Amino acid sequence: EPLWIRPDAPSRCTWQLGRPASESPHHHTAPAKSPKILPDILKKIGDTPMVRINKIGKKFGLKCELLAKCEFFNAGGSVKDRISLRMIEDAERDGTLKPGDTIIEPTSGNTGIGLALAAAVRGYRCIIVMPEKMSSEKVDVLRALGAEIVRTPTNARFDSPESHVGVAWRLKNEIPNSHILDQYRNASNPLAHYDTTADEILQQCDGKLDMLVASVGTGGTITGIARKLKEKCPGCRIIGVDPEGSILAEPEELNQTEQTTYEVEGIGYDFIPTVLDRTVVDKWFKSNDEEAFTFARMLIAQEGLLCGGSAGSTVAVAVKAAQELQEGQRCVVILPDSVRNYMTKFLSDRWMLQKGFLKEEDLTEKKPWWWHLRVQELGLSAPLTVLPTITCGHTIEILREKGFDQAPVVDEAGVILGMVTLGNMLSSLLAGKVQPSDQVGKVIYKQFKQIRLTDTLGRLSHILEMDHFALVVHEQIQYHSTGKSSQRQMVFGVVTAIDLLNFVAAQERDQK
């Protein structure tokens, strides 16, 4: 057995438009009618409502009807409940999964919650491996369901041993009777949507819809739904939504950006999952974080739909894509998950301010006199920076000697690579993860907040409520011999709460 199987392995699926269902090699399930009293909570997966979006479509000038398939009504709160249950049931049916076995899954959280929910009911041990950027709410729900959680670096490539995929496979090879159901490759993922989600949409719309818009992560949702719609409703256009920084969209030119990270969760990847059939997507749109969270908040405030950030991405694209539809036509959007997962993220004004998705003037509360002053007023001194090749031991000596707790790590040209902190280095040394002679590049981390000289002290204040420091950066445009230009970030300084307090105190003292 291989040590790991690539999540982007070539698909062996034989589905073709027009091929009889009787030739399918898979076990198919028909939607079942729910009894009045459910035998367990797993029976509350599927049969989610279709809700008309009344205000947002009109606000953006849509002539067509805009409908939302509300997947956050599933038992675990997301569309991923469907595939989690289906993968477990299919693994039980073919004898792969037996009582007492362990389920391991690399996930952005929602599939993990679905699997942990099913594992709690069915009696399996469950280990979820997820990147650090995923919300604390997801972690809390997983723990409450009895799952064990392993976190991995957000910026690790999918084929790196440190990625959530790599760590999951390492655990599988170490733990007896453990299984990775593997949402990236498992046919049960798109089949769950082909058999149930798509049929529900067709039934709820009486077979009449002209466009379907869905955000894409593993691709199982859009693949399964689109294949069924292509068979039953061939005139329906399928629109895929991919965040900026991901590479799922086609044509490839759409993916060209210097951005590699994004805040919206559960969609987009740096590889093409095996289950994603991009041939059934008629057109791709890219979405960005700001519009995703703005539209998610709009869905909550104006439509009462308590959905997550990827739902915002989907609707932001839908109001663009559906401009081509006329009166009497219908566009369906998939709202994948609930706001429950993001209470401390985009639902929080403070978080939105820190990330730059909300401006101070958007909030009406009274601010102190210094709130709208610029960061450049602080008069920061030149920063202490270190090269990635310097040793951890030497870096600790320098920081202690100069009285700093942290320093930016830059390359020879001064471009920011990340940050090192005294606390992080000492804990890594004590844990045996690094040696004093190791290069400081081994303990770089990139989960820090950046701020510009033109940003306000109010925004800085919000950042420092949650973080010990902020890195002050400025952009530099560099022209190359080819005539092309590129933008790079340079370090201007490091600012802490002490710097802000000293500035405010000094100004008030001078005024007296």
Rank of each mutant, 00 (worst) to 15 (best):
Phe295Glu: 12
Met466Thr: 12
Gly418Phe: 09
Cys392Trp: 11
Gln323Val: 10
Thr421Ser: 11
Leu378Ser: 06
Thr395Tyr: 11
Leu353Phe: 14
Glu508Gln: 13
Val473His: 09
His468Gly: 04
Ser485Glu: 14
Ile238Pro: 05
Asp510Ser: 11
Gly393His: 11
Val443Cys: 13
Arg350Ile: 10
Val415Ala: 15
Leu353Asp: 04
Arg459Cys: 10
Lys449Arg: 13
Trp371Glu: 09
Gly423Ser: 09
Gln376Ile: 07
Leu460Glu: 01
Ala470Ile: 04
Val339Lys: 05
Leu254Thr: 08
Gln476Cys: 09
Val375Gly: 06
Val317Ser: 06
Gln302Asn: 12
Asp467Val: 09
Asp242Glu: 06
Lys366Cys: 15
Ala249Arg: 02
Tyr445Pro: 07
Leu254Ala: 09
Met419Tyr: 14
Tyr269Asp: 02
Leu417Asp: 11
Gln302Ser: 12
Ser481Asp: 10
Glu365His: 14
Asp405Trp: 13
Phe448Leu: 14
Gly308Pro: 01
Met425Gly: 09
Ile267Ala: 05
Phe404Thr: 08
Glu377Ala: 10
Ala413Asp: 02
Ala316Ile: 11
Met425Ser: 03
Val472Met: 15
Asn341Asp: 02
Ile267Pro: 07
Glu465Trp: 00
Thr395Val: 12
Leu422Ala: 11
Val241Asp: 06
Gly432Leu: 11
Arg459Lys: 14
Gly379Trp: 12
Arg340Glu: 07
Asp510Met: 12
Thr260Arg: 06
Val315Glu: 07
Gly432Ser: 05
Val332Asn: 00
Val317Glu: 10
Lys449Asp: 15
Leu380Tyr: 11
Gly240Val: 09
Ile396Asp: 09
Arg350Asn: 10
Ser246Glu: 03
Val434Pro: 13
Thr421Val: 14
Phe357Lys: 05
Val434Arg: 10
Leu305Arg: 02
Phe357Ile: 05
Ala311Cys: 08
Glu360Trp: 13
Lys484Pro: 14
Thr391Asp: 03
Gln478Ile: 12
Gln376Tyr: 04
Val440Tyr: 05
Val317Phe: 06
Ala296Phe: 03
Val264Phe: 02
Phe357Ser: 02
Leu457Cys: 07
Thr421Ala: 15
Gly441Asp: 14
Ile477Leu: 15
Glu401Thr: 06
Glu250Thr: 10
Leu335Cys: 09
Asn502Asp: 15
Ala318Phe: 02
Glu258Arg: 11
Glu401Ala: 12
Phe293Gly: 02
Phe448Arg: 07
Lys283His: 05
Gln476Thr: 12
Tyr262Asp: 00
Pro273Phe: 00
Gln323Met: 11
Thr385Leu: 11
Val434Ala: 14
Ser486Asp: 06
Glu303Arg: 02
Gly423Thr: 07
Ala249Phe: 05
Asp510Cys: 15
Glu361Met: 08
Ile463Asn: 05
Thr344Gly: 12
Asn424Asp: 15
Met419Gly: 11
Asp362Tyr: 14
Lys433His: 14
Val275Pro: 04
Ala431Asn: 12
Asn502Ser: 14
Thr496Trp: 02
Ala296Leu: 02
Gly493Cys: 14
Ile444Gly: 13
His394Phe: 14
Lys484Trp: 15
Ala296Glu: 05
Lys367Arg: 15
Gly308Ile: 00
Tyr262Arg: 02
Ile390Gly: 15
Ser381Glu: 13
Trp371Ser: 09
Asp289Asn: 03
Asp270Met: 00
Pro436Ala: 12
Thr389Gly: 10
Val504Phe: 14
Gln256Arg: 15
Ala318Trp: 01
Trp371Thr: 11
Asp277Gly: 04
Pro388Tyr: 10
Ser461His: 09
Glu252Ser: 11
Glu324Gly: 11
Asp438Phe: 15
Val332Gln: 01
Leu384Glu: 12
Thr314Ile: 09
Glu258Leu: 11
Lys446Gly: 07
Thr391Leu: 09
Val472Asn: 06
Ser310His: 01
Met490Leu: 13
Gly493Tyr: 14
Arg400Tyr: 14
Phe448Asn: 11
Phe448Thr: 04
Pro388His: 09
Thr257Ala: 12
Ala497Glu: 05
Asn502Trp: 09
Gly266Glu: 01
Val472Lys: 03
Leu453Arg: 15
Lys366Tyr: 12
Leu305Val: 15
Leu464Met: 11
Gln489Thr: 13
Leu373Cys: 09
Gln439Ile: 07
Thr364Val: 05
Gly304Met: 00
Phe295Ser: 14
Leu373Gln: 04
Ser437Gly: 14
Asp411Lys: 13
Lys484Asn: 12
Cys307Ile: 07
Ile396Lys: 04
Glu397His: 12
Gly268Tyr: 02
Met419Ala: 15
Ala506Val: 04
Ser348Asn: 13
Gly403Val: 14
Gln507Leu: 09
Ala311Trp: 03
Gly379Cys: 12
Thr482Arg: 14
Leu325Val: 05
Ser246Thr: 04
Lys402Gln: 14
Ser381Leu: 15
Leu426Ile: 13
Phe346Ser: 04
Gly414Trp: 10
